[in-house]
């Protein structure tokens, strides 16, 4: 067995094993009478969705969005505001949330994509701050205090989200669906243009691709996916608050992407799990867990840019051409 093939086997084991564990988690948590871990992993999965969506533009398109948490807020507020007015039906909440986050992403993208480099980072941050302050000033929807949501999304009896287990499987299904979708997208001609524009925009333009339009579409898709993560987050916590849009939250999403390995889509899932787990484990030992997390982060940036997924030998240097390696077994 060569080293490469051993790696492939290892990776397959980790991915399939991880998926199997995720599938059996709810009954295991119930058996152990520890519903807390179900909530915790649901939270991880939701942030995995958000991180995955950010990777789509950050890892493949080199669009360093420092305001990605804004869509988390848009999705969550769509649920919160509709629920406040007594609208809990999924067939209203979900489309509204999706359209709202797509529209917001389109607006932000239209302006931001005119800039590049550090200016792009700053302008996405500025837009996220605007939405954050908008959230604070929505007095009837709780303003700074946030808004308690009385009931989870109502799927008309088909899916009963009141059960944490059902919510968990829904979140898992959305994550896997987005992962598949993301991989298809990256492997497609569209994805090729996005990746091409990252390494050499002028060449792609010369080849006749309207790169800005392609990048805008990618930006909107990523924002919308993150909006869905917001919908799920609001359902998990029964609460929405401007804090979901705080700039440190955007920073955390970026950390998840890098920690897991950017430009791999699967990596950020690992990143989300790792960061939240680290937070959970460290914070149970010391309240000063950020004192440890901060330097860990610096070390990762300096020495382990390929992230956790890279350790499994799977993440490619994102600049490399071609679709990410063979992909997960369910891909």
């Amino acid at each position: 067995m060569t080293a490469t093939s051993r790696r492939i086997v290892l990776r397959a084991l980790v991915l399939w094993g991880g998926l199997a564990l995720l599938l059996v988690l709810p009954p295991a948590a119930a058996l152990a009478d520890q519903p807390f871990y179900l909530t915790l992993v649901t939270r991880m999965l939701i942030f995995a969705i958000a991180a995955l969506s950010l990777d789509l533009i950050l890892g493949y398109g080199a669009m360093v969005s420092f305001g990605h948490a804004a869509y988390l807020g848009v999705g969550a507020y769509a649920v919160g505001i509709l629920a406040y007015h007594g609208v809990n039906a999924a067939w209203i909440q979900w489309p509204v949330a999706i359209v709202a986050s797509a529209l917001v992403a389109a607006l932000i993208g239209l302006v931001s994509l005119r800039t590049s480099g550090v200016y792009f980072i700053m302008i996405t941050l500025a837009f996220a701050q605007m939405l954050y302050f908008l959230g604070i000033s929505l007095k009837i929807y709780g303003g700074d205090d946030g808004l308690t949501i009385n009931a989870r999304t109502d799927f008309g009896g088909v899916i009963d989200l009141a059960s944490n287990v059902v919510l968990y499987y829904l979140v898992l299904a959305v994550l896997l669906g987005f992962l598949l979708l993301g991989q298809r997208l990256i492997a497609s001609r569209f994805g090729m243009v996005i990746r091409g524009a990252k390494s050499n925009e002028r060449r792609m333009r010369a080849l006749g691709f309207p790169t800005v339009r392609y990048r805008l579409v990618a930006f909107v898709i990523a924002g919308t996916m993150c909006g869905v993560a917001g919908v799920l987050l609001a359902n998990l916590t029964n609460f929405t608050s401007p804090a979901y849009m705080h700039w440190t939250r955007s920073g955390e999403l970026m950390v998840m992407v890098i920690l897991g390995g950017m430009g791999s889509l699967i990596g950020p899932i690992f990143g989300a799990f790792a960061l939240l787990a680290l937070e959970e484990v460290l914070s149970s030992y010391t309240q000063h867990w950020q004192f440890i997390l901060g330097p860990v982060l610096i070390l990762i940036v300096l020495f382990a840019k390929r992230g956790i997924y890279g350790l499994l030998g799977a993440a490619r240097e994102s600049a490399a051409a071609g679709p990410p390696a063979a992909g997960p077994p369910h891909g």
Partner: peptide, 28 residues
């Protein structure tokens, strides 16, 4: 010093790490 030649993304993340570190350090 090690970050000058890195891209902006690395700089943002590493200095974000510094923020976490310092905020907690002063608390300690």
């Amino acid at each position: 010093r090690t970050l000058y030649d890195r891209d902006h993304l690395d700089q943002v993340l590493a200095t974000f790490g510094l923020i976490l570190f310092f905020n907690e350090a002063v608390r300690i």
